[in-house]
Design a protein around this nucleic acid. Structure first.
Lengths: 126, 126
DNA sequence: ACTATTAGTTTCCTGAAGGAAAGTAGTTTC
DNA sequence: GAAACTACTTTCCTTCAGGAAACTAATAGT
């Protein structure tokens, strides 16, 4: 195989990136779909940065959420393997929700989101 | 003011981060609200990575969108200063949509989203 | 017995998101 | 004068997200 010059490599990369836009946009769309709605990011961020929590803890912590939405969203997040649900053998029974390792892999994204959001707030205020 | 040890600084940071969770989550929530829906990310990513486009270009490029949604979303993005709308003096008139510098500041976030999304697709496939 | 707490589920409701198709309006080409 | 292209807007419709409140079921304390 012939060695390529820097220029050729650069071109190839640009070309593949150009072709890849569609795939990239599809991927971004998937993510938005996965995290869509008012609550998922808030729940994930809470579990990720505040640590594991019980149902009632989340109900109090996630500002404004009701039990129906919370339970529905938790099921959804669990089905995507972003969190785990563990029934604890206490009386009355409690249920622990914890972020998975896979869920933690969203941290970079969430932090970008938070940083941009904070700057955005500053911009709007001024 | 007394100099602080590394340990003290570390503690202080952790503490301030703990307090800041609420603000951070609010910021993340703002971002999700700003980018909510099926189309905004796709439009922004297209304009950001593919360059400026006319209405009809976007209609063809953003897979599946209709003219009503496109025009609505473009207005929304313009109102948040993420894109600009420029009427060109051609016949028939054409309208150019272009990402703003501020809109470009979302690139980091979008790239994180794309990368995570691509990995996610791989995970789901396997 | 009565109340409280846990973790939900169920029902009923409203408003917003989004799609399909047709319409508007100006200009240009055949 | 008809058709086509530009950039939309309008209407009508369906579906879904999400909220409020009541309800279930098990257990524990008083």
């Amino acid at each position: 195989m012939k060695l390529k010059s820097q220029e050729e490599i650069k071109e190839a990369i640009e070309k593949s990136c150009a072709q890849d836009h569609t795939q990239g946009i599809l991927a971004a769309r998937d993510v938005m779909e996965l995290l869509a709605g008012k609550w998922k990011i808030q729940i994930i961020a809470t579990l990720s940065f505040d640590g594991k929590k019980r149902f009632m803890d989340l109900l109090r912590h996630v500002d404004g959420i009701g039990s129906k939405m919370l339970s529905k969203e938790l099921q959804n997040l669990e089905s995507h393997q972003l969190i785990t649900r563990t029934v604890c053998n206490t009386k009355p029974i409690t249920v622990m929700y914890e972020i998975t390792e896979y869920g933690q892999s969203l941290n970079g994204l969430i932090i970008e989101m938070i940083n941009w959001g904070i700057d955005h707030r500053k911009k709007i205020m001024s």
